[in-house]
Every structure is written in structure tokens, then in C-alpha cells.
């Protein structure tokens, strides 16, 4: 665990608390894409199946359980919110899910020579979760571009997700240099994902940082 990975994880953790705070204190899920949240829940469930078979550390275990539980709760709250107008949540998620699944079937880290059938299915689902996470933010980005009255807290939520991605990139540079650690699937998908946030940070700069306090 290096400092970049840790800061990235903490920023990811903060993003959950920001979104939960928005949902609980404003009692409104306006501006929150149910589709993006459902994709994140799918990402975490598919990626953290190894909870059942591999123990890395208590840190890893507890974070994984929290990520799954928190994203399930967020999906539940947004899906059951009566005041949510999801008219602008119009992204066609099948265009994200199907290509990610197809790509995962062909580009993954399976080792059929060792490990059982179930472990290799987990590798395919792990790759699927990496690809899906890279693009899962797109429905939320589309909503932010369409909605005029995006609340600052939603923007801060997105910013903390972007910081999480940026620090994971630094983490991979560090690990490649000091540990020889190199997972091309995670790194390439991570770069794509971080580039998508560049679009958001332009919006963030224009709509939040340039907006004078009133």
C-alpha cells in the first residue's frame, strides 16, 4: 500500500459519503443518475466475488463490503425516490454493458492451465468490472450536461471520484517503478476512465469553481 493508492481509496470512500449526504440531507435524488449507480453496483458485485475465496487484508475486506453495501443502498434510495425525475437519465446503458462483457470474454487474465472453471469465470467478471467501471460514469456525465441546476454536492461527488482515479494512476506509476507491478487491463482501462473525468473537470471548473459565492 503506497500513499497514492491510499489517498485514491480515501477519495473513493469520500465520494460515497458525499453522495449519501446529498441523498439523506436534501431528501432528493435529483441530478443523480440511477443508471450510473446501478452500473457501479454491478461493478462492485462482479469485482468483489473474490471476497468469498481470497483474503487480502482486513482493509480490503471491509472496504469491499462497504462499497457493495453503500452502492446497493444508494441504488435503493434513488430507485425508490418519488421526487426523482429521471427524464434526463436517458443514456443507453446496453451500449456500455454489452461491449464491456464481450471485451471481458476475450481480453482477461484467465489462466486456464491453473485454477478451476469458477476461478476463471471470476477473472472474466473481474475484467468486465474494470471495463464497465471505466465507462459507468457516462450516464451521470450526460445528466450533468443536460441539467442546469446541478447541486454543488453532486459536483463534489464527481470531483472526488475523479481524484480517486487520478491517484490510482499515480499508484500504478509508483508500483511499476518500485514493485514491477503491471496489470495492463487495469491500467489501460484506468487511463480511459480518468480521461472521461477530464471532461467533467472542465464542467466542474466552469460551474462550481468559477461561480462566485452568493
Amino acid at each position: 500500500m503506497n500513499i497514492f493508492r491510499f489517498v485514491g481509496d480515501m477519495s473513493h470512500l469520500a465520494s460515497f459519503f458525499l453522495l449519501l449526504a446529498k441523498l439523506i440531507y436534501t431528501k432528493s435524488s435529483t441530478g443523480v443518475s440511477l443508471k450510473t449507480q446501478a452500473l457501479y453496483l454491478t461493478v462492485f458485485v462482479c469485482r468483489y466475488l473474490d471476497l468469498l475465496v481470497a483474503f487480502v487484508s482486513w482493509y480490503n475486506e471491509l472496504m469491499k463490503i462497504f462499497f457493495i453495501a453503500a452502492s446497493a443502498y444508494i441504488v435503493y434510495v434513488v430507485a425508490t425516490s418519488t421526487r426523482n425525475s429521471n427524464a434526463s437519465d436517458t443514456y443507453r446503458v446496453e451500449f456500455l454493458v454489452i461491449p464491456a462483457l464481450v471485451l471481458a470474454c476475450f481480453v482477461n487474465e484467465t489462466h486456464w492451465s491453473k485454477g478451476g472453471w469458477s476461478l476463471n469465470v471470476m477473472e472474466i467478471l473481474w475484467a468486465f468490472s474494470i471495463y464497465l467501471e471505466a465507462v459507468a460514469v457516462l450516464p451521470q456525465l450526460k445528466m450533468l450536461h443536460q441539467l442546469e441546476d446541478t447541486t454543488n454536492i453532486t459536483m463534489h461527488y464527481m470531483a472526488s471520484l475523479g481524484i480517486y482515479r487520478a491517484f490510482y494512476l499515480l499508484n500504478w506509476v509508483y508500483r511499476l517503478y518500485y514493485e514491477g507491478y503491471w496489470h495492463p487491463i487495469a491500467v489501460v482501462a484506468g487511463i480511459v476512465q480518468t480521461l472521461l473525468y477530464a471532461d467533467f473537470f472542465i464542467l466542474y471548473y466552469q460551474s462550481v469553481l468559477l461561480r462566485l459565492p452568493s
Binding site: 481470497a54 487480502v56 499508484n171
Partner: peptide
Amino acid sequence: SENDDEHDEL
């Protein structure tokens, strides 16, 4: 290293 096969990130 041997740990390269494991996914230790979140």
C-alpha cells in the same frame, strides 16, 4: 512476484 495474479486493489 507471486502476488501478481491476485487483484489486491479495490
